[in-house]
Simulated scan of single mutants.
Amino acid sequence: VDGNRIGAIGFCFGGRVVLDMARRGDDLKAVTSFHGILATPEPAREGFIKGELLIEHAGQDSMVTMEAVEAFREEMDAAKARYHIDVFPYAKHGFTNPQATRNGEKNGVDLAYNEADAEVAWQNMLNLLERTL
């Protein structure tokens, strides 16, 4: 591992974890959150986020609303962070997980896998990693 070139990715709650790592100033060059929780009790402060953030968000996510996305955007702008948000308009929470639809139906949760959007989101992350690491 090259300690000068570290990235982090997370899904759902893991997305929040990697974003919070960036918010507290961990030395990460790239961070990707897939259908992640964007809210935090400790908003980013200017100058703390060292790397570039990529948010891969489902436009039909009933757990992390577009209002939460807008609040995140405002937080990142105030922190002067480098970030990009991709919104997949027809995707639901868990869209990268091939088991999401079945798990959602089984547990009564609004989840759905979307293979096409998952592939695009993954490629977006690979592009970020190639550019930053």
Rank of each mutant, 00 (worst) to 15 (best):
K50V: 02
L133F: 12
I85Y: 01
K80T: 06
D20M: 06
A81Q: 07
F88M: 08
L133G: 09
F11Y: 15
W122L: 14
I85A: 01
V1Q: 07
Q60F: 11
P98W: 12
G36Y: 10
G94T: 05
A68W: 03
L129S: 09
W122N: 13
K29A: 07
E119T: 11
E74L: 12
L133I: 15
I37M: 09
Q60K: 15
G14D: 05
R16Q: 13
A58P: 07
E74M: 12
N97E: 08
G51W: 11
L19R: 04
M21K: 00
Y113E: 07
A44C: 11
L54G: 08
E119V: 13
R5I: 03
L129R: 09
G104P: 04
E52H: 11
Q99N: 15
P89K: 10
A58G: 15
G15S: 10
V69P: 01
H84K: 13
G59W: 09
G36L: 10
A58L: 01
A39Y: 06
D77I: 07
L129T: 11
K92C: 11
G25F: 00
V1C: 08
M66R: 10
A39L: 08
R23N: 02
A8E: 03
V120S: 12
L128K: 06
R23T: 00
T40Y: 01
D2H: 04
F11M: 05
D61W: 08
E67N: 08
K29C: 11
